[in-house]
Nucleic acid binder design. Structure first.
Lengths: 339, 339
DNA sequence: CGCGATAACTTGATCGTTCAAACTCCCGTG
DNA sequence: CACGGGAGTTTGAACGATCAAGTTATCGCG
């Protein structure tokens, strides 16, 4: 196996210097046309590929973004994150970036791991997910001056006028609002099945339903349970037995929607419109409507915040008023229940 | 922000030379105890972290494994792969390795991308997934001498006596065999719902059922459809209407199992044992039994093949007879149907 | 006691790239 | 025609680690 060609080899073949080859690769505009073409030809002839480690060593940039992989929790919502990771990888590649995974079980472990990666020069930026109130990761990243974007808004600490950090999120309220508007076609009594108050995400999703109902001068039942199929099923079965009138059901997650749908089938109402959230394969399999988060847009937004609208290096957008986040509008996917 | 300390700085503080610091990090055994402790203390005091790019440049090793992310196909089987990626990341971290993602839509694109990464010195090895008959990727990787392991066996070309390349896979036949043995408790007539012949994976899964039935001197119905919930449902509904006697149903995937379960519920047999494959969250949500692939074991096996049972560098096990693969025995997860 | 062997540590060179500064043309201008 | 200036190109140094070869200390043994 012959040694891989270096800039030196390309330079010799093209009859120019190292630096000119480097310029052709990095700042082609300053090289004269004829010279550039000769160099490009030599690059093709030799099959030259720049050695990333050498470049990273000199420039002190790795062109790599780190992303944490949550421990597999069971449950079905991991899919959104997986699609996001995938989309991020594609988009990052287009911008000359790589995506490096790391695993950690706790926030502290994650901080330690990020420290290794940042100090080792392995990553230029981080994307963190699943932020929560008082998240130590955001504090640490900020204090260490590590460029980062959160998928999920900084619950509690953020202020649009004085943003704590960059973030991308899906507009949960807009999603449930769309679902509720759609559900109102089926009848006035649109119920909501959500999680107990206190989770930012859940409260947002509930708000979309509540405000839409108020706007339409309607009211409907509100049920809350933990995010679990069996619990959701029991809660809805119970409500139906009590003869609560429900024309349609907007849910905070697909897990809840599945449980609700099972209860409806059991109660002899297989066509009760039930709308989930996250558009997971499970909802698809059962033919349930759901709200699609559009992870591709989230990924694109994250990169825009980190690298600007078109750049190829990490240069985080300054966290100035109003410009420090991207809020993606989700999309209702309508399906006709298959049972 | 102060400049990050280098080996030089550590050496000065500890009163030794660069190389001794390097030895403490890489071959601690050859450094005298007292010296090593002084160096380790200096490392802690300064918060020194080795610069990965510099190391990679000199050693010509990136300590990074590349893995392809399939385009999101919809459907539910992506979960297995995601869990595998996650497990691989954890295990790799334990062995001082990193996992780099890359995306590609076609095999040719994937080859091009792998070429970039390998020639750029970004990855030392690759894990490929979803291999198929005559896969151009395995040919390319072999011809380029890139260490790699496949998740999925080399259908058609492999021979245990003369293995084509390293691979890890789940023993599908063992899985359906276990499922079938379990199902036989419910009655003699255990049917199989699989995919049309020709897919290696599907044929293996069917074989486990068939041989177990033969071994027990029983026979059962065999149905095949594409991997789709609605098609599975229609097929099973049809069979039940024809009054085929089915005591239990072993399926080649959770999608098929879900379809089968829906048909059973509709036909008034909600307790018909239906066993899926892959143990996806969807099966869990519906309370269906399924066969768990144990992605953690697959990941551990992949690394063992690539790095030996305990090494910290990529040193692929030679592809010698019988030793070039790891076959993981999957595990039946029994659930009591929730409807 | 002297010698060779081994252990422990140090020194100079190197990996492939880009930065910073220097150099060479060539053109327009006073 | 000397000179300033800019475009285009070249040269030496540097990034931070490890390899390979060299040096010094330590020890066993005849």
């Amino acid at each position: 196996m012959a040694k891989a060609p270096t800039v030196e080899d390309v330079a010799r073949v093209a009859g120019v210097s190292r630096q000119t080859v480097s310029n052709v690769l990095n700042t082609p505009a300053i090289v004269r046309d004829g010279t550039r073409e000769r160099v490009e030809q030599a690059i093709r002839d030799l099959g030259y590929r720049p050695h990333t480690a050498a470049r990273a060593l000199r420039t002190r940039r790795s062109s790599t973004i780190g992303i944490h992989l949550d421990p597999y929790a069971g449950g079905i919502s991991g899919v959104v994150l997986d699609r996001f990771v995938h989309a991020l990888t594609e988009r990052a590649t287009d911008r000359g970036m790589r995506v490096l995974l790391y695993a950690a079980r706790t926030a502290d472990q994650e901080i330690a791991r990020m420290g290794d990666l940042v100090d080792g020069g392995e990553i230029d930026a981080v994307v963190i997910t699943g932020t929560f109130h008082g998240d130590p990761r955001t504090r640490w990243l900020t204090s260490r001056n590590v460029p980062f974007v959160a998928f999920g808004r900084p619950w509690g600490v953020d202020d649009v006028e004085d943003p704590a950090h960059l973030w991308v999120d899906v507009d949960g309220a807009a999603g449930t609002a769309a679902a509720t508007r759609f559900a109102l076609d089926a009848g006035d009594r649109v119920a909501f099945l959500g999680w107990p108050s206190g989770s930012g995400t859940g409260d947002e999703r509930e708000r979309g339903w509540r405000e839409t109902m108020q706007g339409a001068a309607r009211s409907g039942l509100r049920l809350t349970v933990r995010d679990d199929v069996a619990l959701a099923r029991a809660a809805v079965a119970d409500a139906l037995e009590r003869h609560e009138s429900i024309d349609a059901l907007v849910c905070a997650s697909d897990s809840l929607a599945i449980g609700a749908h099972l209860a409806a089938v059991e109660a002899g109402m297989p066509r009760l419109p039930v709308i989930g959230f996250d558009n997971t394969p499970s909802a698809e399999a059962l033919g349930l409507s759901s709200i699609e988060q559009l992870p591709e847009k989230v990924a694109a937004g994250a990169l825009d915040l980190l690298m600007g609208p078109s750049g190829n290096v990490v240069a985080p957008r300054p966290t100035t008023a109003g410009a420090a986040h991207v809020l993606v509008e989700p999309q209702l996917v309508v399906r006709t229940p298959s049972v």
